[in-house]
Simulated assay, not measured.
Amino acid sequence: MSKVRTMSMALCAGVLLVPAAVAVVGSTAAADTTEKLHVDYESGTLDSGVDGLSTSAATAPDASVVARPGHEGSYAVQHKVTLGDPGYESNGAPRSESATDLLPAGRFDVGDEQRYEFSVLLKDWKTYAPGDSEAGDIVFQGKHSGGNPPAFYLMAQRNAIAFRSPHLDRQSTVVEDLRPYVNRWLSFRVDARWTTDGTGYFKVSVRLPGQSDYQPAVVYEDVPTYQPENPAEHGYVKWGLYRPSQSIENGDELTRIVQHDDIRVSDLP
């Protein structure tokens, strides 16, 4: 039976939420890792000096740019999407993203146990008010190749940040209120064991401004994590901005901008 753990005690929609003291068990505690990829943009270029790193296919000149300052360095990457403008679309959808699809160091497959870390800044983010659209803006994805839906993603939705696994049909809030952190760097960590049976897991941790270390947010245990709908050669990660459910007709915010920095892919022991 699969298990879900987060940081408060409640029973809601059949999901058990437990206190932080319990969530530490089996969570993202310190672990010896082998870093495979670190994208820090200190080269001042969109590919961060990493040969093969895919950059945005959106054609607008400001859909993807190098911005400064970065999270802990001089530079970060900035992605922008304006609804209704084809210059901010890729593969027919409103998105501007970077990806590790072509990088062996940025891929995952069945049997891998990996850690994904990134820092994100929601730039001048218009926060949610009653009556606004409740669609989410995706800022990081773990994807299967072959045009498959993501295995997981993190998104800003309403005034929270949520972690979702589409094929598990599960979603959990990992930052309750993003409003104090607009224009400030937030850091996230996702540990994953990639399996086709019920032995996999997703473990999500968050480091908010002012915190010295990551704090456990949610754990999905004893679940199949590698479940592409179509044949997939491998998995990979993407970061930027993807607005799959937004439209001008729905009254969604016309333009959104995010910045990313310090993207890391590491093997867990």
Rank of each mutant, 00 (worst) to 15 (best):
V4H: 07
R5H: 10
M9C: 12
L11K: 14
L11S: 11
A13F: 13
A13G: 15
A13Y: 10
A13I: 07
G14Q: 04
P19R: 08
A21L: 10
V22S: 05
V25D: 09
G26V: 05
S27M: 00
A30D: 09
A31F: 03
T34D: 11
K36C: 12
L37V: 13
H38Y: 13
S43R: 15
G44D: 06
G44R: 09
T45F: 06
L46N: 07
D47Y: 00
G52H: 04
L53C: 06
T59A: 12
A60S: 07
A60K: 11
D62W: 04
D62S: 05
V65C: 10
V66W: 03
V66M: 01
A67P: 00
A67R: 06
R68T: 15
G70C: 09
G70F: 10
E72V: 11
E72A: 15
K80G: 09
V81Y: 05
L83W: 08
D85A: 13
G87M: 10
G92P: 03
R95A: 06
R95N: 11
S96C: 03
S96W: 04
S98I: 14
S98D: 12
A99C: 05
L102A: 15
L103N: 04
A105C: 12
F108C: 00
F108E: 01
F108M: 12
G111Q: 12
Q114K: 15
R115V: 02
R115L: 12
Y116T: 06
S119C: 14
T127F: 01
T127P: 01
Y128R: 07
A129R: 14
P130W: 15
E134Y: 10
G136W: 08
I138D: 05
I138G: 00
P149S: 15
P149N: 13
A151P: 05
L154P: 05
A156G: 03
Q157H: 02
R158H: 06
R158Y: 02
A160E: 13
F163Q: 07
S165Y: 06
H167E: 11
D169N: 14
R170T: 15
Q171V: 15
T173Y: 10
T173H: 00
T173P: 01
V175C: 07
D177L: 02
L178Q: 01
Y181R: 04
V182G: 01
R184W: 04
W185D: 05
S187I: 01
S187E: 09
S187K: 03
V190N: 04
V190F: 02
A192T: 14
W194Q: 01
G198I: 00
G198E: 12
T199P: 07
T199R: 12
T199K: 05
G200I: 02
Y201R: 04
K203S: 02
R207H: 09
R207F: 04
L208K: 11
L208Y: 04
L208N: 08
P209E: 03
D213N: 09
D213V: 12
Y214D: 04
A217F: 00
V219C: 07
V219M: 07
V219I: 14
Y220L: 13
Y220P: 00
V223A: 07
V223R: 02
T225E: 02
E229Y: 06
P231G: 08
Y236V: 03
Y236I: 04
V237F: 03
G240K: 01
L241I: 14
Y242P: 00
R243M: 08
E249F: 14
E249Y: 13
D252K: 03
T255N: 11
R256S: 13
I257G: 01
V258F: 08
Q259P: 03
R264D: 08
S266N: 11
D267C: 10
L268W: 07
P269V: 07
